[in-house]
Design a protein around this nucleic acid. Structure first.
Lengths: 155, 155
DNA sequence: GTTCTTGCAAACCCTTTGCACGTCT
DNA sequence: AGACGTGCAAAGGGTTTGCAAGAAC
């Protein structure tokens, strides 16, 4: 869970963004960010919907989707799309950044941290004339012994 | 478009895979691979469906989806998922492998080739006990001058 | 007061599935 | 002959949209 101080910084960042884009600062939008800060993990739109409505915070799915989009636009959230799954989000400040290796035989997902990618990201973005924000690297691979892999369900 | 020779290699590779997995070698599956070899670009399931049915090759969407899945399983095709779009495929042999930078302000996608990622991919996969197949790196960034970017539609 | 946002339900898109028929082995 | 693949249309899941009511400015 983000500290109180971190939450205030995020709210400030979000309000500034909304003002700058001439969007309105509504109770729902602030509430949603507040409740996201309570989750220290990846989450889907529907998980957030259930998290909020299970605790008396009435918000519609339409508002959740729209606010998640705004929070992603201003880089407070990072949006992930693994394989065929629904979109998942996490606070960008939830460091360190990690990437994912996916086994094409059994679908297992392994998280890893590889610092050298950051430098490559920055160098490539600069070369192409962009300011880098973040990245997503997915490595597709198979176990060294796929036939004995405990996760394997394909044959 | 892949050369005649390349197509034969791909067909051989596909037949071997089907036999190994005890799947049947049907006319539809071979036809689909043939028509994919004509496309020198990324394509979606529906684009392939239209490509085939527009030229008298009657194949159902169900068969297209199922065959694309088989072709991805045996690494003849690589499956991409950009942002919220539908899945896109391309021949894995359509080299060199490239990655993508996406502008979060205007959605522009820039392709780039960065060789050093291959070594990182192999090293990470090995460290985690996997045999690397391929990877997908997406860099999210903004133009150095987002307000003057010709692609920008957000303000 | 005007404009934007919300909530609901229906619509939407891409993909998967059930079932009867056809095809591969 | 038997098992598997195909085609169709309908179902499915996640996300977006149209519209009336409500909140922000």
């Amino acid at each position: 869970m983000a500290s109180l101080n971190q939450i205030d910084v995020l709210k400030q960042q979000f309000s500034d963004f909304l003002r700058r884009k001439k969007y309105r600062i509504t109770q729902e939008r602030i509430n949603i960010l507040d409740r996201i800060a309570e989750i220290d993990d990846h989450f889907s739109a529907d998980e957030l919907y259930l998290h909020m409505n299970g605790q008396g915070d009435k918000v519609s799915r339409a508002t959740i989707y729209s606010t998640l989009d705004l929070l992603t636009q201003c880089s407070i959230l990072t949006k992930h799309r693994f394989q065929g799954e629904s979109a998942h989000f996490e606070l960008s400040s939830r460091m360190p950044h990690h990437d994912h290796l996916i086994c094409t035989e059994c679908g297992r997902i392994v998280e890893f941290r590889e610092e050298s990618i950051d430098a490559i990201r920055d160098r490539v973005a600069d070369r192409l004339g962009f300011r880098p924000l973040h990245h997503s690297l997915q490595i597709f691979a198979v176990c060294h012994s796929p036939t004995t892999c405990v996760h394997n369900t394909s044959e």
